[in-house]
């Protein structure tokens, strides 16, 4: 059987809100390492990878590796019934066809059980090699969200260019064009407010803003976001989940035909 107890239950609620519009059904893989998921969107342009390490849970028991197929919209409906301060416990039996979500209020005066049916999902898993990226930009997550939202009111695609001058986000549409440049800025009070550019080589890639905007639904998970780019690889947009792991989005670039 498996049983995970997550004191900061709101983390799981935030993860679901970040991915449920991108991916409909997914297999959650449970092992001694942690609770993970890898799933592509229906058009195979974007991929979500989640890892919540076992050490981040107050209690983590996983007797054998288990794959739980869930409809993310239904899971989100269940998790929305948990309070933001609730402790969430996930339970399932080996070979069973249900998962139980238990929500405990912080004062322990309200305890709820929700059972959800599991699904058989045949999903394609991609092998993602560890890569050295030509450029990695780390910036405040709220700033990145604002840029993607602003640019999508003007165009459908964004060109992200990293040079030693900074990172430039550009778009063009019927009404005109826009360029937003963020320079490296490490002289801030808090590290999460910094913009840090690690550039081995300049890189310039084009992406669909629709997907970028979808990724920024993960903004409540982390103060900062990192964008890893190479000219021959998908973009990686990573939100670290404090003390537990990460939520990563991979996005295939657009190219000149």
């Amino acid at each position: 059987m498996l049983e995970f107890r997550l004191v900061q239950g709101s983390l799981l609620k935030k993860v679901m809100e970040a991915i449920k519009d991108l991916v409909t059904d997914a297999n959650f893989e449970c092992s001694s390492t942690g609770f993970s998921l890898q799933a592509m969107d229906s058009s195979h342009v974007a991929l979500v990878a989640l890892l919540l390490r076992s050490e981040g849970f107050e209690h983590y028991r996983c007797d054998r590796n288990l794959s739980m197929g869930m409809n993310l919209n239904n899971m989100s409906k269940m998790l929305k019934c948990a309070g933001n301060d609730d402790i969430i416990t996930i339970k399932a039996d080996d070979g069973g066809d249900i998962v139980t979500f238990m929500f405990e209020s912080p004062s322990q005066d309200k305890i709820s059980d929700f059972e959800m049916k599991l699904m058989d999902i045949s999903s394609e898993q991609l092998g993602i090699p560890e890569s050295e990226y030509q450029s990695i930009v780390r910036m405040p997550a709220a700033e990145f969200q604002r840029i993607c939202k602003d640019l999508s009111s003007i165009g459908d695609t964004v060109i992200i260019s990293v040079t030693k001058e900074g990172v430039k986000f550009s778009t063009r549409g019927d009404i005109g064009s826009a360029n937003i440049v963020c320079r490296q800025n490490t002289s801030v009070d808090k590290p999460e407010e910094a913009t840090v550019i690690e550039m081995k080589e300049p890189v310039s890639l084009t992406f669909a803003l629709r997907y970028m905007n979808s990724f920024t639904k993960a903004t409540p998970l982390s103060n900062s976001v990192s964008l890893s780019m190479s000219s021959d690889l998908p973009l990686v947009v990573e939100y670290k989940i404090a003390d537990m792991g990460y939520l990563r989005f991979y996005l295939a670039p657009k190219i000149e035909d």
């Binding site: 592509m40 058009s43 195979h44 342009v45 974007a46 991929l47 394609e124 898993q125 991609l126 092998g127 993602i128 090699p129 695609t157 084009t206 669909a208 021959d232 690889l233 998908p234 991979y250 295939a252 670039p253 657009k254 190219i255 000149e256 035909d257």
Partner: peptide, 14 residues
Amino acid sequence: EIFQTSLEDFFTNK
């Protein structure tokens, strides 16, 4: 013309 690539163009299936 700008063409949208897919992830399979970069990553292999396991």
